[in-house]
Simulated scan of single mutants.
Amino acid sequence: MNFKLLFCFFTASIVLQAQEKKQNDTIKIEINSNTKTIYLLGGIDSVITKEDLDFAKKYNIQFHDFGCIAPTNFEEYEVKNELVFEFLNKNYGKQWQKEIKPSVLGFEKWKKKEI
C-alpha cells in the first residue's frame, strides 16, 4: 500500500515538473510576442469572468488561469505580470488599474511599488 502511494506521489511530481517547464518556456515566448498574458491563481473552477474577458479584449491581453495546479515559482509569474502591468500603463494610461480585479497575481504588490 505504501509503495503505491509513494509511486503516485513520485509520478505526480514528475508530471508537475514537466508542466512547469513547459509553462516557463511558453512564458518566455509570450513576453516577446504581441500577445500579453496575465496569470491568475484559480482553483477547481475558472476564476476568469465575463468582465475579465471584456477587459482582455479592451486592452488586447489574455488571461491564463493555472487552475488547481498552482506554479511553485510565484515570484516569476508576478514579475511576468508586472511587465504586462507596465505595458498597460505605457499604452493605456492608468485607467485599466480601476478595471482589473485586485486579486490578479502580483497586482497589489506592484501597485504599492508604483506609488
Rank of each mutant, 00 (worst) to 15 (best):
Q17T: 07
G43K: 08
Y39F: 15
K50T: 15
E99C: 00
P102F: 07
K109L: 09
Q19E: 13
N32Q: 14
Q19D: 13
F63C: 06
E82V: 02
V79N: 11
H64Q: 11
Q62L: 04
K101H: 05
I69V: 13
F63G: 01
G67S: 07
L53A: 07
D52H: 02
V104C: 12
V104F: 02
F10S: 05
K28R: 13
S33W: 11
A12M: 11
K4P: 00
E78P: 00
C8D: 12
W110C: 02
V79W: 05
L53E: 15
A56H: 02
Q23P: 03
K111F: 06
S33R: 05
K98R: 12
S33Q: 09
K4R: 03
M1C: 09
N24F: 08
I27E: 12
E76N: 11
K4A: 05
A18L: 13
D54L: 12
K4Q: 10
G67H: 01
G67V: 09
Y59R: 01
N34Y: 06
K4M: 04
Q19T: 10
K28N: 13
F107H: 00
L6S: 06
F55A: 01
F87D: 15
H64L: 09
A56V: 04
N91R: 03
F74Q: 08
Q95I: 13
S103Y: 11
I38M: 00
I31M: 10
A56G: 00
G106F: 01
K28D: 15
K101T: 05
A70Y: 08
K109E: 15
D25K: 10
K80T: 05
Q97T: 15
D52A: 02
A56E: 01
K113V: 00
E20T: 13
Q97H: 10
E30A: 09
F10N: 08
G106Q: 01
K36F: 01
K58A: 02
G106C: 00
K22W: 08
V79E: 04
I44M: 08
C8V: 06
E20V: 02
E20Q: 15
F74Y: 15
N89L: 14
S46M: 04
A56R: 00
I48A: 13
N24H: 11
M1H: 14
K22Y: 08
G93W: 03
I29T: 10
I14M: 03
I27R: 08
L41R: 12
A56S: 10
D45F: 10
A70S: 11
A70D: 07
